[in-house]
Amino acid sequence: MDIKDIIKPENLVYDKSKVQIDTIMHYCPGCSHGVVHKILSELIEEMDIQEKTIGIAPVGCAVFAYNYIDIDWQEAAHGRAPAVATGVVRLNPDKFVFAYQGDGDLASIGAAEILHACNRGENLLVVFINNATYGMTGGQMAPTTLNGMVTSTTPGGRNIDLNGYPMKITELIAQLPGTSYVTRQAVHTAGAVRKCKRSLKKGIQNVLDKKGTSFVEVVSTCSSGWKMTPVDANNWMAENMIPYYPLGDMKDSVKGGPVSEN
């Protein structure tokens, strides 16, 4: 059969979102950033919100997010995306604003900004990519790096006495009354991708419904930073990251509402 006989509109089962820019990505093979970009692009198209969306990109591997998702973007200083997003949303309450951040950006240098934005209940979505390392700068220790995990600044493995504990910042954020929805997801299997998409959709809808801060952590891989093949990185993540950072909703309620029981 000729390929032209197969490529017909009636045979189309999957298409890339129009909001995703057709270009070569700088992300490494197996990196979770690309998957999350794809989901966000799809949701922005499906929910028809391209015209009201303003994304805040971090300093980190997602610094070039504006090259991949066809919306208006602002590139924030390292860790300051929640403050930048606050400025946008306070002055433009009719827009859908989201901050997209890595774990170094969000949990280390930007810890104050994220806690305070969530505590004020800023009406925005935070997408938090937790790959347990600083991907962009070459795989150094992040606040979320697991105990014993080898990185370029913990060549002997993370040592609790020296480096403190891997930070469960999402659990902290769930305690802040300003948040309405706090969840931890992953994108390492098809099922996980579908669940993560549902969570991100809920987060976006919450912002459109002006419910305060929604926070979606995505436990992620960094195959280059971890020095693993994409498949090994996925398996390693499932075996080591998810037990310490269990998936699921931590809060699904309203601003000021209770934290989930489990």
């Binding site: 303003i54 805040i56 400025g87 002055l91 900004e113």
Partner: peptide
């Protein structure tokens, strides 16, 4: 808005100015 720090306030300014 009273920000949590001057670091935050100047970045809020960045966000607002960019719109």
């Amino acid at each position: 808005l009273q920000a949590e720090s001057e670091v935050a306030s100047i970045n809020m300014v960045y966000g607002g100015a960019a719109t």
